[in-house]
Design a protein around this nucleic acid. Sequence first.
DNA 1: ACTTGACCTAAAGTTAGGTTTAGATAATAT
DNA 2: ATATTATCTAAACCTAACTTTAGGTCAAGT
Lengths: 146, 146
Amino acid sequence: MYSIGEVSKMFQIPISTLRYYDKEGLFLGLEKNNSGIRIFNEKTIDALRLIECLKKSGMQIKDIKEFMKWCSMGDKTLKIRKEMFLKQKKTIEKEIEELNNALELIKYKCWYYDEAVKDNSEKRVKNITPSQMPSDIKKAYENSHK
Amino acid sequence: MYSIGEVSKMFQIPISTLRYYDKEGLFLGLEKNNSGIRIFNEKTIDALRLIECLKKSGMQIKDIKEFMKWCSMGDKTLKIRKEMFLKQKKTIEKEIEELNNALELIKYKCWYYDEAVKDNSEKRVKNITPSQMPSDIKKAYENSHK
DNA sequence: ACTTGACCTAAAGTTAGGTTTAGATAATAT
DNA sequence: ATATTATCTAAACCTAACTTTAGGTCAAGT
């Protein structure tokens, strides 16, 4: 059993955000005591862990809410919940791939500015063709310019 | 030389977004012909590729704009530009790590719902302890619940 | 009794990153 | 010549995800 303040500290999430999530229907099993104060239990902590994970992977609040609703509908929604996670797995894998692509261009830029700072000028590095670049930088450059 | 419509198709970015980026000062070398129509060249295409990359890694428009301004200020900003890319490299690497963590929980959930759908019930899978899970799932579960 | 700190709700405000609209000009095809 | 298509600007509008504000309740310590 945790208060909203404790949960806020545990997850480093503002209290206002936790209340907002509750208002949006993300904590379906969240109880309140008889003076209206929220009481978080292991189940809601689990839900919050999942919310953080789904949010990190780009899912919108309204879609997370829909999932939570399915959870409250029992076994008849098992299949759709499974499909949601399979789809989300693909989404995350694609995002990781795209970030790796972005990283290639950034690595090229790091090399570029390293050379430029050495010379205190872009003149020389600007004119280096891919065939003159170190092989890992060449790869990064070509990956990000196709 | 490309028109805004051609660039829009090449990058799959709405024309309105390209105009918005221009308005925000992201295309510092972008020229217009004498009737006010934008003419994109290789330099602005390069800038756009970089903008996409920085945006994908979570950088804000105003910070991208600041970088573009440094570019227009010549060699005295080489060092700060280099530092920006080094910092952004770390940011992306951290994001990839976090997405990999998120992926672990999603993989556990995929396994969980796969079992539940087999049984047409959560009853059995709900009570499986980490030590009874397949070893890769156990790892994923423990990684995402610490 | 009263002050302090943690909690509550409802409603308004904020921010980023666009998108849409309206009204105009320009280039192209028939 | 004229209709269509592409472009332009400025300004209003939109959405998601919060955050802040205002005004109030509640429990614990002094």
